[in-house]
Design a protein around this nucleic acid. Sequence first.
DNA 1: TCAAAAGTGTTTACGTTACACCCATGG
DNA 2: CCATGGGTGTAACGTAAACACTTTTGA
Lengths: 231, 231
Amino acid sequence: MNAASFYGQAPKHLVAVDCIIFGFDEGKLKLLVMKRKLAPMAGEWSLVGGFVQAEESTDDAAARVLKLTTGLEDIYMDQLHCYGEVNRDTGARVISVAYYALIRIKDHDRPLAQEHGAHWLELHEIPTLIFDHNRMINDALVQLRNNAHFHPIGFELLPEKFTLSQLRSLYEEIYQKTLDKRNFRKKILSLDVMEKLEEKDKTSSKKGAHLYRFDPARYEVLMRKGLVFEI
Amino acid sequence: MNAASFYGQAPKHLVAVDCIIFGFDEGKLKLLVMKRKLAPMAGEWSLVGGFVQAEESTDDAAARVLKLTTGLEDIYMDQLHCYGEVNRDTGARVISVAYYALIRIKDHDRPLAQEHGAHWLELHEIPTLIFDHNRMINDALVQLRNNAHFHPIGFELLPEKFTLSQLRSLYEEIYQKTLDKRNFRKKILSLDVMEKLEEKDKTSSKKGAHLYRFDPARYEVLMRKGLVFEI
DNA sequence: TCAAAAGTGTTTACGTTACACCCATGG
DNA sequence: CCATGGGTGTAACGTAAACACTTTTGA
């Protein structure tokens, strides 16, 4: 058997990407879901997705789909899982590779998202979506929690400058439990991966809270020294 | 746009599965790799793999490939990652979904494996494999370590009945570090997920070591009560 | 002057680590 | 009788958890 026939015998498949896009706004963790405007399934809720093109990696396809809906590039994305059940899509056999993305809601192109029928919903507002998209969301939440525990990915959801209260409320949202204020400050500051700025944020208190900035370079150095990030 | 044209526009892809098959034998963690007998790439080392068929889920394809090479069914398998780079396969554009499996080496069909050109190699013996297969193995090792840390998957690699010394040496292999004998016993026994048998194994000492058996039902009950398995 | 969020230390409990000797037995 | 691996407990240490009051300042 030569190479041509070896590959030629095998069946080909539609391959899609679906994106679970997380944002954090007004103290709440939110998800971008779309109400489809086009057939098939017009009017149904779904994740943002699209087909993988011939000259495009699955990672690139996910990035393209994200940009198409939010206008954002160079965003934190991670592959979640490949969903390969034969009948998962009711229209055709489609293998879907799911990705989850963390974005700063404030940065995204709101009109563009609206034009695509996209809505930001809180976790408890998520309706029934098409196919296995609810399962994808559940899987993404589990992975987000695991991942946030040992990697500094929370910062991807916050503005560049943030207060410790904002950071804590983000982790409270992700883990769905309240965290002790003093212990949280102690732990996160002891990691020594944030820069304390002179500026204060006065939008949420009269006294004002110091702003901090995550320092990726510092994080890298500490990782190489064997620091275990855990929060 | 109707459903037919919506799906019809999208390109189709070859989709493969590749299996990283771990075994544990003579105190060593081993991997099943094949020396290909057929073109293309005859003589090259590769993982065990195959194409996803039309009426077959990716999970089923991985299970089929595993059975084809080892004769084993109902084996612990978990999806690792989907590798979707355009040029990762030099013969054609192939999207590959990698799975890793944990088997009891003693149980597998040795002649069948041999017939397929399969070899069990220790980690440090792994040669350069085709395509991105070495990367897959590295990713699988990372995932095996993470996974073994919080899930009772080590037992999948041991015979049904095993001694605590065997279990410890397995974890030493997985984590690549020596573990304190007393502390290990204390920790694993405190989890209370194993049944102590009357039988002793006398193959490795004159005194004989008690055999234990993992009790999945007990584990399930404890999990539901909120126990955190960690080893 | 007071409401509202920011900021700050200490004590206690618990789990992890380090560590060395006796036991049982087959050859 | 001795070599070999099996089996056992305790003390020191470090991290996580619990917990309440003072500070600042705009309205």
